[in-house]
Amino acid sequence: MELLNFARGPALQWSLAIFIFGITWRLVGVAVLNWPKELSTPRNGNPLLGALRMMAMRSWPHKEFLPKTWYSEVMGYTFHIGFFAVFLLFVPHIIFIEALTGLSWPGLTERIIYFLSLITLFALVAVLIRRLTHPVLRMLSNFDDYMSWFMTISPIITGLLVTSHVGLGYETLLAIHILNIDLLLLWFPFSKLMHAFFIWSCRGLTGAAFTRKGIPAQ
């Protein structure tokens, strides 16, 4: 019980504080840099609409590229959607978030969540195998890539253990699961997981720049 209290008490509070401070620090650290002025005469497109368009459309792969990119696209979508579905639609998670924020919404049944967790687990293992075997990915990968993968898959594994009541006692497993989340929160601001935020500004900037030039923002 002490471990569980620690996990959902001070450990969670500190992790959340570092999570929020770290994210703010990193976003502000980029935002305070010089914003380049664009002096060329734009074409007719609206850069703001272009930014929004690319934010949405870049998630939709070009069919011309799909023969080469389908594996990454399918596995990437699967584990992202699976992870967020499990995180946001598992009833105990919703109750936990409600206790923290007061917000609540309907969830999915445990059976569906269990299935989604297994699918997510499968996709995450698949992307790791690709990272370890594809020459380009092996070359590009660094500690951040593997650690972020571990931080993403471990809550899925410990969550499955908690719901399956496998191994240690329920409370101990739950404590380990929440500690997992605490670690994920701690790691997040310093890692590539920050792409959850940067993806929007990055796509937006390119979408606006492309639209100025008359290049389709997609």
Binding site: R26, V30, A31, L33, N34, W35, P36, F65, K68, T69, S72, G76, H134, V136, L137, L140, S141, N142, D145, K192, M194, H195, F198, I199, S201, C202, L205, A209
Partner: peptide, 21 residues
């Protein structure tokens, strides 16, 4: 290194798709 460059630098997830095209 300006705001745009930094945003790009911060964003790469090492997916390697750029190689494929």
């Amino acid at each position: 290194t300006d705001f745009v460059t930094a945003t790009y630098m911060e964003s790469c997830i090492h997916c390697g798709l750029c190689a494929e095209v």
